Computed example of a mutant assay.
Amino acid sequence: MAIIVTGASGLLGVPLVAALRGAGERVVTLVRREPRSGDEALWRPAEGVLDPAVLDGASAVVHLAGAPIAERRWTAAYKRELVRSRVDSTRLLVRAMREAGRPPGVLVSASGVDFYGDTGDRVVDEGAPGGSGFLPELCERWEAEAAAAEEFGVRVARLRTGLALSGRGGALVRMLPVFKAGLGAPLGSGKQYWSWISEPDWVGAVRHILATPEVAGPVNMGSPTPVTNAVFTRTLGQVLRRPTMPMPVPGFALSLGLGEFAKAGLLPSHRLRPGKLLDSGYEFTHSDLADALRAVL
């Protein structure tokens, strides 16, 4: 039986597929171009194209597809793309699972820590309510489409991922030129919590979820030790052996440069507790931020 993966060419999809295949699993990736081997299958979510036979008898589906949140300014058109690429693609995937003769037993579907909105200093576990605004409401709609698979007996885990630390791309790599130039600085007040998770722990946690039947529903994907943005800034500077700026970058300056994303994606505080992972026995490889940064860089 195969594990089906969407978003397999993305930041976290690449190491996950490599780890699963390295462990002897058969992985079939869904691609938008013509498949080049038996380990690829066609889907075109914007056009509603996915053959349910692709999912028939699969052991699990890991759904990571979605347009990047932070790589473009949020024009009205791009916000529609952010919604479409998550909500519509998940709806298509779940519909195909429903129509498969033997639906997969597990759906692990991406979501984000932004589900909670700005939670300040409060420690947030998976039972906390959702927030308000574009990103929380997008996450809520995204998760609702995935949860629909529970109606026909599929175990669904919804990954509320924080800042994923990878040396191959993503937010951390975009920060590096500024920090290497000695210009890294706290953002806004610097007091907002950033819940982070190393790439190896994110991959390990997904494999743990796939193998652990009791893990279902929302799952906080962050280390047990979130830090404030000011601490993150100082720690990254220390790891890179570069000074950091004492004065923070004002929120209005971030908004001028990055538009709506700055207020919605950089300044809210998320102090996650990964309760379901810890309670089900997952052991984090990286709970210390400096160790995690050294490992991925």
Rank of each mutant, 00 (worst) to 15 (best):
V239M: 07
M245F: 01
S269Y: 07
R241L: 12
H270D: 03
L172W: 07
A253C: 13
G169F: 08
E199R: 11
L163P: 02
V219S: 10
P224D: 07
L240Y: 05
L272D: 02
S255H: 15
V178K: 12
G259D: 08
P246D: 00
G162K: 10
P200G: 02
V178M: 15
W202K: 08
S195I: 01
L183M: 14
G265L: 14
R241P: 05
P186V: 00
R234V: 05
Y193K: 01
E214M: 13
F252T: 06
P177A: 12
V227R: 10
G259Q: 08
R234Q: 13
G184P: 00
V178D: 06
W196S: 05
T228K: 07
Y193E: 06
S255I: 04
K180A: 15
R168H: 13
G184S: 11
L240K: 05
R160P: 05
A230W: 04
G204S: 04
V239T: 04
G167D: 09
G182M: 09
R242I: 04
L159R: 10
L187D: 00
L172E: 09
M221S: 05
P246N: 01
N229K: 05
P250L: 05
V173M: 15
R273C: 14
G170E: 11
V156C: 07
G184W: 01
E260L: 09
Y193Q: 01
L267P: 03
M221Q: 04
G170L: 11
A171I: 11
P250V: 01
G222A: 15
P218M: 07
L159H: 08
P186A: 10
A205S: 13
F261W: 12
